[in-house]
Measured scan of single mutants.
Amino acid sequence: MLSDEDFKAVFGMTRSAFANLPLWKQQNLKKEKGLF
């Protein structure tokens, strides 16, 4: 599990902003970052 700081560094957004994205968009971002 990423820390909040690492999460923001990897995804360029906060966890709450990420959580507001549609599920497909979350999955695409995870795949792009190799976290899926």
Rank of each mutant, 00 (worst) to 15 (best):
K31H: 12
M13P: 00
V10D: 03
T14H: 03
L2H: 06
L21M: 06
K30L: 15
S3R: 05
N20H: 10
E5V: 07
L23V: 12
W24M: 05
M1Q: 12
W24P: 04
L21W: 02
A17N: 06
D6I: 09
M13L: 05
L35I: 12
G34D: 08
N20M: 13
V10R: 09
L35P: 07
W24Q: 05
K31Q: 11
K25I: 14
F7M: 02
L21I: 02
L23M: 10
G12R: 02
K31R: 11
F7P: 00
K31S: 09
E5C: 06
D4F: 03
S16Y: 10
E5P: 05
D4E: 12
Q27H: 13
L29V: 06
K31F: 11
L23W: 13
S3N: 10
D6N: 08
R15Y: 06
L35C: 15
S16G: 11
M13H: 03
F7A: 00
A17K: 06
L23S: 09
F11Y: 11
G12W: 00
Q26K: 05
E32I: 11
K33H: 11
K31A: 12
S16L: 12
E32P: 03
N28V: 14
L35W: 15
A9E: 13
R15D: 03
D6F: 08
A17T: 08
P22A: 03
A19T: 08
D4P: 05
Q26R: 05
A17C: 12
G34M: 10
M1G: 12
K31E: 12
F11A: 02
N20S: 14
K30F: 15
M1H: 13
E5Y: 07
F36T: 13
M1T: 12
K30N: 09
R15A: 06
N20V: 08
E32D: 09
G12P: 00
F11L: 04
K33D: 04
Q26S: 02
M1V: 11
L2G: 05
A9G: 08
M13R: 01
D6R: 07
F36N: 12
L29F: 04
K8Q: 12
R15P: 09
R15Q: 07
T14S: 12
L21D: 02
S16W: 11
S16M: 12
K30M: 15
A17I: 06
W24E: 10
S3T: 13
W24R: 04
M13I: 07
A19N: 13
F36E: 13
R15M: 07
